[in-house]
Amino acid sequence: MRTIATLEELKSLVGQEVAVSDWIEVTQERVNRFADATGDHQWIHVDVDRAKAGPFGAPIAHGFLTLSLMPAFFESALHLPSRLSINYGLNKVRFTSPVPVGSRLRARLTLQACDPVPDGGVQLTWLAWIEREGSDKPACVAETLARRYA
């Protein structure tokens, strides 16, 4: 985990890979819980037997499940003291390869921009490259926005 002492320190890190998260395993239980939470019970995710005969040979995680791990990736990769942190949204998201159940994922976090916002905060634009262990192709590439206030 990387610790950044102040919001001011972030400005010098624009354009750099700042941190890499811990690995997170995508289990069938996690996929099933996500399906229950979102109502997305498509067979490719939750019907193990049918998915084995499907195009990927196994059940795969929902793309939005992969994306929803973003807070956990940041939590394990970066410690930045601030009084408030707000998810401000996404600019771009691509799900570039499937995530078979049993895969491990982690995120490489590159700071693309650090712009001041009212009330003494900064808006951070991050490129999150979510990689699957053992794969050359990322599972997801997302440009995510956060606002932090000292």
Rank of each mutant, 00 (worst) to 15 (best):
R2G: 00
R2F: 03
T3M: 08
L7Q: 10
L7R: 00
E8M: 12
E9Q: 13
E9G: 05
K11C: 10
V14D: 04
G15D: 12
V18H: 03
A19N: 03
A19M: 04
V20C: 10
V20R: 14
V20F: 01
S21Y: 12
D22E: 15
E25Q: 11
V26F: 04
V26H: 01
Q28D: 02
Q28A: 07
V31I: 14
R33I: 04
R33W: 07
A37G: 01
G39A: 02
H41A: 02
Q42H: 14
W43H: 05
I44W: 03
H45T: 06
R50A: 15
R50P: 10
K52D: 11
K52Q: 15
A53S: 14
G54V: 04
P55F: 02
I60M: 09
H62I: 00
F64Q: 06
L65R: 02
T66I: 03
L67R: 04
L67M: 11
L69H: 01
L69I: 00
P71V: 01
F74D: 02
F74P: 00
S76L: 07
S76W: 09
A77H: 05
L80N: 07
L80H: 12
S82C: 15
L84R: 15
Y88V: 09
Y88T: 10
L90R: 11
L90E: 10
L90A: 08
L90W: 07
K92E: 15
T96G: 07
T96Y: 03
S97K: 03
V99R: 01
P100L: 08
V101Q: 12
G102T: 01
S103R: 01
S103E: 04
R104S: 14
A107G: 13
R108A: 04
A113R: 12
D115N: 15
P116G: 08
V117K: 07
G121F: 11
V122P: 08
L124H: 10
T125M: 11
W126N: 04
W129T: 08
E131C: 05
R132G: 00
G134E: 03
D136I: 01
K137D: 06
P138G: 06
A139Y: 03
A139C: 03
V141Y: 07
E143V: 14
T144C: 11
T144D: 07
A146G: 13
R147I: 11
Y149S: 12
A150S: 13
